[in-house]
Design a protein around this nucleic acid. Sequence first.
DNA 1: TAGATTGTTAATCGATTAACAATC
DNA 2: TAGATTGTTAATCGATTAACAATC
Lengths: 208, 208
Amino acid sequence: MKREKVSTAVIRRLPRYYRNLEELSQAGTVRISSKALSASMGITASQIRQDLSCFGEFGLQGYGYNVENLRREIGEILGVGRGHRAILLGAGNLGRALMENFRFDRCGFSLEAAFDTDPALIGTELAGVQVLDVAELETYLAAHGADVAVLTVPGPAAQALARRLAQAGVGGVWNFTNMELDVPGPTAVENVHFADSLLTLSYMISKG
Amino acid sequence: MKREKVSTAVIRRLPRYYRNLEELSQAGTVRISSKALSASMGITASQIRQDLSCFGEFGLQGYGYNVENLRREIGEILGVGRGHRAILLGAGNLGRALMENFRFDRCGFSLEAAFDTDPALIGTELAGVQVLDVAELETYLAAHGADVAVLTVPGPAAQALARRLAQAGVGGVWNFTNMELDVPGPTAVENVHFADSLLTLSYMISKG
DNA sequence: TAGATTGTTAATCGATTAACAATC
DNA sequence: TAGATTGTTAATCGATTAACAATC
């Protein structure tokens, strides 16, 4: 194995591998070759082997990969099972949709608290999670900490909150706002820009 | 200009250019050089010029680009202003969040109808949009058509619906389910895989 | 053993960056 | 005119694909 720095292209494929292996595992498939996986994922077998070789040797010559074993290994690489703790900021429509529908646990996260500014929401419970006052954010984080913050607030509030989160030591921001966040140092930002995504689709269908 | 086929890497940057130019335009900035834009976007000036040159010559030597003009040109490339029509399938939490919060119009789309299977929802109106019975999907599409379908249904229903949409001539599927869709031919699919995104973030914060 | 399939090295392909003549 | 900045060509860098020895 190589263990130089792994390119983001590779990293962004890991969740797809993980998802496919989960499905295979659930379907009871015990082993799979890079060739078979390649066919079902629309990626070359060569690339799959190359990608995996960044992290170790998970296969067996003449056999392929043990599905459950490979799933677990990739899960470990992605950090599933580290007991990551998430908080959510902005319990509006989108925030609530994520709280009620998104399976944080399947990604190895537990959603521990939500924050909002609306007095009508503060003190209530949504999807089994307490809604706290954003004013208490630093107090909460000092006491409990959090690995990731889900940012589903209105755009204008995003940048300031992101900075507060980074300041308080939150490791990553999952950004659903349409803002480009500028956060210092070690805090990671992962953007889910709906508009960018829809505009890409718009381009794709506008060819004819 | 070149006009060979444009790589997806370039296309995925276009919405970001568009977004930045919107902001500049709203801030009243009249002109900008590739160098200045590069600094504010964290992309090299060379890449910006290279990207734009795929579509035409929008700048002026010694001057740079007219912000509003470039914004409009990129908007045109992306298909904003074509009056694209969208329908939404699955008016659950996430679907409703998109209907009520997402500015389809800012991407040049109008949301024309929603579909669900829940009798309690069918016939009601959400965010000014009628909710129809999914059973009427084909009838509706035959009568009105649609350019894009927003797919916010539960995973198990996704694949079959995607096929029905493609069959009925819908040009693109904006896929929010955690399923990998297999649709025939000319219908485009743009995925918004929340889990993949969160797992990528999980990887990023799991290094230490 | 023979066939299958890995991990890795080498070859190819594509995307990003640098350089610069053209020109506003 | 002199300075700035484009569009494009060439150089570099990185990522994907192909090939193959190792070996289950």
